[in-house]
């Protein structure tokens, strides 16, 4: 799939497969994938996180404002971002699980709270520019230890490996899959599904917040709407990658592949003169097709 899209792009657009263009796409895809790590985990456990734009905004604005303007050290910013996002995510997970409410609605509200909170905290003023240290991470022509690959790409690869180890080879990862696959059976073998939900939402939120910091550095600034495109494309990347809602199939690698496909597609579409609207339409259709193929519900007559 990825190869196919890539070849199509090379044929359609001059310079598509040139070094700088590939690097740029890799950086964008890596950011997209990192921003969707949390979403992937939450979907695996059986939820849906619409608070992603909120977490990204928190991370991005904190980077621009606290690190850029106020000159906090980066680690302090990272710690506070993780703290805020993890708390918000944990609250969402707890409400969803204990009150049996759809995670969609709760996280939608949480997103609004976070973004509103950010606006209030910054008094909607102009934001600073992220410091140099972090901008190096997402610099397209950047190098990692003298290897000509931008650090953020290496980070994404590292996270793929790490998440694979976690999901496939640790007890916590196994319990996450089990909870997503069949919550009743999971409770039957005495897995504390409430705890799994809360930690997954909290961890996902924290990871997304950190991705927001990188996004700020990539865009050399932050605004309160910075998270939206990453949320939409990220969710599409998760679903197009084949991680199906409510069935606990999939992993982060698939999300990365989905992100690569979507980034390449978007690049091609914009090269062909099509806009943001068209790629959204395409994303929507892609989701429908993929989900129709993977994740359909039971029929009503089988439930009597």
């Amino acid at each position: 799939m990825v190869l196919g899209v890539f070849v199509w792009g090379s044929v359609q657009i001059d310079g598509f497969s040139s070094g700088p263009s590939v690097r740029a796409m890799l950086v964008i895809a890596s950011l997209l994938a990192l921003a969707s790590l949390g979403q992937t985990l939450v979907i695996l456990v059986g939820g849906l996180d619409l608070a992603v734009p909120g977490y990204i905004t928190v991370g991005a604005v904190a980077t621009a404002e606290l690190a850029g303007t106020k000159g906090w050290p980066l680690w302090a910013v990272a710690v506070s971002v993780v703290g805020v996002c993890a708390f918000a995510g944990g609250v969402c997970g707890a409400i969803c699980h204990y009150l049996r409410v759809q995670s969609l609605v709760v996280t939608l509200g949480m997103s609004s709270v976070l973004i509103g909170g950010v606006i209030v905290a910054t008094k909607a003023s102009n934001l600073g520019v992220p410091p140099q240290d972090i901008s190096k991470w997402t610099f397209v022509m950047g190098e990692t230890l003298d290897v000509p690959v931008p650090p953020v790409v290496c980070l994404a690869v590292g996270v793929v490996v790490g998440s694979w180890l976690f999901l496939a080879h640790t007890p916590a990862g196994r319990r996450l899959y089990a909870t997503g696959a069949n919550p009743r059976a999971a409770e039957g073998i005495l897995i504390r599904t409430g705890r799994v939900w809360i930690t997954t939402f909290a961890f996902g939120a924290a990871a997304t917040g950190l991705a927001g910091m990188l996004i700020a550095s990539y865009s050399s600034g932050a605004s309160v709407t910075i998270g939206d495109p990453y949320f939409y494309s990220g969710l599409a990347a998760v679903l197009v990658g084949g991680t199906a809602l409510g069935s606990a199939r999939g992993d982060f690698l698939r999300t990365v592949l989905g992100a690569l496909i979507l980034t390449a597609l978007t690049t091609i579409l914009s090269g062909m003169g099509l806009g943001e609207g068209d790629s959204r339409i395409l994303f929507g259709l892609a989701i429908i097709v993929v989900v129709l193929a993977y994740g359909r519900d039971r029929r009503l007559r089988d439930r009597i």
Binding site: P171, R174, R175, A178, A181, N182, R184, A185, I189, A248
Partner: peptide, 24 residues
């Protein structure tokens, strides 16, 4: 299907789930 097994997981994973600590 509803209470016992995890259809999306492998045989070994289905078997191992309650006693993960032992294999870690």
């Amino acid at each position: 299907r509803h209470e016992g097994m995890f259809e999306q997981l492998a045989i070994g994973e289905n078997f191992g789930l309650p006693r993960l600590a032992q294999d870690t």
